[in-house]
Amino acid sequence: MSLADATWTGPLAVRPTFRGAFSRLYLSEMRLTLRRRRNVALLGVLAVVPVFIGIAVKISTPHNGDGPDFIGQVSNNGLFLVFTALTVALPLFLPLVIGVVSGDSIAGEAGGGTLRYLLTVPVTRGRLLAVKTLGVASYTAIGVLIVTGVGLVLGGILFGLHDVILLSGDTVSLGNGLLRTLLVAAYVTVALFGLAAGGVFVSTLTENAIAAMATTIGLAVFSALLDAVPQLRRIHGVLLTHNWLGFGELLRGQVDRAALLRWSALHLAYAAVFLSLAWARLTTKDVTS
């Protein structure tokens, strides 16, 4: 089962026109991605994070400082289950899931021998890369939304949703809190896009999908490692993973918009570099399988 099989059906696909080909390719890509058992299982892993934390907090109420950030607030306000779950999922689970899907994006097709068929559909290699990237980005957003959504629903059921106490001690309405939660999810998605793009680039380098996945996850681990060395403080600001937890900025009384924009721009810059490299690689590559 590959993308080529799914696209190379119906009379429309053989018509030598690009109209609609892109969106059809994107839709079939998403269908395939979300139908793969492995990818669904990975989303299940993400959903387990808030479930696990929620149940643990329900059984024994922790105090602040007992575990991940925000955990002491969860029992007072279910909304904080979202932030606790994101804090836990960001260093490991989310990069893992993104690494698998982005690493597989091109290398998986090449390794399965389906890339050359895929290149016969009436789209250019650049567009194929765009579809693959968009697919990985959509999957990232779905992953973040699952952590957020499951956290929100379960937190609401277990602990109820109330007015939100910000990091600065000011209290804002639940509506304001929900809006901030939405922005947090959006920021985290953008912040993870740099890594996702890195995975797509790595995926163009090899036909071994496992190697591409491992390398992508390695990128995140390596960046986190550098981030933990105090002597490298000067370069911390530009590391891939350094600002992932910067979503906390959205939970302050005075939100530093400039910082959020700067960090988002950094991740988009990473994405631009990785994607241009991926484009150069894919368009000059001799596809033999």
Partner: peptide, 29 residues
């Protein structure tokens, strides 16, 4: 004054006769 940490903040608010401190880590005032 708001001392900023990662996912944490401590505030000192002086308003006339009142002096408050708040620390987000332990939710203490």
């Amino acid at each position: 004054i708001a001392v900023l940490g990662q996912l944490a903040e401590s505030d000192i608010v002086h308003n006339g006769k009142d002096l408050w401190t708040y620390s987000s880590r332990d939710n203490a005032v």
